[in-house]
């Protein structure tokens, strides 16, 4: 393993590689959900390591809501090309026709139609029986109880009261026709682990994580970047250039920026260690209502 890694990062890396290989060995048709964020970048890097000198024996899938930052899409296409891995991009065309957007429909409906339903469409369309996700247990309360191999019914539903017990590193991968399993290889990583690993392994990440002058508007205390003309300005509102960066990445109208001058990985790690707010604080979709993540997950959200 890489010599620059601390003991605990080596352990986390080896555990994740073990999980990724189990999936490739036991499932008929796996896919790796690729959301372009730092966690996905780490997961993809681990997959490259897991099968070396072979390439990962599964494609990447990006569920595109059409509202991702432009930098993310550029990064996505370059990464797939550079690594020589198949990339499937799925857009819920029905949602597009219905004019669903975070602005017109609100974050709830937009997420439901363009992310959750779109993901289910893609999984059904290609008949994937296992899908990797980059979620971590330290992100959010309901994630803490999620299994590494999380069973989903043929309707993609998650039943938190009826999860398979998961002992040692013996993962039960058995599914019937139509059922599937979501697999979270970096379950045991924390945000700090992810950044320290990105740094130690020199993993490319989307530039939006680094501070730069960007056009933002302030709404309900959150800084929203105006990534393109689709974000309508409210009366009297003018985007101003501010030095900002993002801790997590999603649909740009739903992702709050933070004011920061962190332009390097060192800066980011230092800033994170001093931070007093959690990573998902900038994610507007989580705070809609109590237990909102659990509700989304039951319905098939990653």
């Amino acid at each position: 393993m890489s010599s620059g890694l601390s003991t605990h990062l080596k352990r986390l890396e080896a555990e994740s590689i073990h999980i990724i290989r189990e999936v490739a060995a036991e499932f008929r048709n796996p896919v790796m959900l690729y959301s372009i964020g730092k966690d996905s970048s780490v997961m993809l890097h681990l997959a490259m390591k897991a099968f070396y000198p072979s390439k990962p024996p599964f494609p990447l899938l990006h569920v595109d809501t059409t509202w991702k930052f432009r930098d993310m899409i550029t990064f996505r296409d370059e990464t797939a090309k550079q690594l020589g891995i198949d990339l499937i991009v799925h857009i819920n065309e029905d949602g597009v026709k219905r004019g669903i957007s975070p602005i017109a429909s609100g974050s709830n409906v937009h997420t439901q139609v363009m992310k959750t339903e779109s993901l289910r469409q893609a999984l059904d369309k290609y008949g994937f029986d296992a899908a990797f996700g980059g979620a971590r247990r330290d992100e959010e309360k309901s994630r803490a109880k999620e299994r590494v191999f999380s069973f989903r019914t043929a309707n993609h539903a998650w039943d938190p009261r009826n999860q398979r017990p998961e002992l040692w590193r013996l993962y039960n991968t058995r599914v019937k026709q139509g059922e599937s399993i979501r697999v979270f290889p970096i379950s045991n990583w924390t945000e700090l682990d992810v950044w320290q690993y990105v740094q130690a392994e020199n993993i490319p990440v989307v530039p939006l994580y680094f501070a730069a002058m960007r056009p933002v508007v302030k709404r309900d205390g959150t800084l929203i970047m105006r990534d393109d003309e689709r974000l309508p300005l409210l009366p009297g509102e003018t985007p101003e250039m501010r030095l900002v960066r993002f801790r997590t990445l999603g649909c740009y109208p739903l992702t709050g920026a933070i004011e920061s001058d962190a332009t390097s990985l060192d800066d980011i790690i230092a800033e994170m260690l001093a931070s007093t707010t959690s990573e998902r604080q900038g994610r507007l979709i989580d705070s809609d209502e109590a237990g909102s993540m659990e509700k989304k997950k039951r319905e098939g959200y990653f």
């Binding site: 605990h8 330290d138 803490a144 109880k145 999860q163 045991n188 924390t190 700090l192 682990d193």
Partner: peptide, 13 residues
């Protein structure tokens, strides 16, 4: 159910 938590000190995670 089983929930997993993460914390670190200067010596260990």
């Amino acid at each position: 159910d089983v929930a997993y938590r993460y914390f670190a000190t200067a010596k260990r995670t």
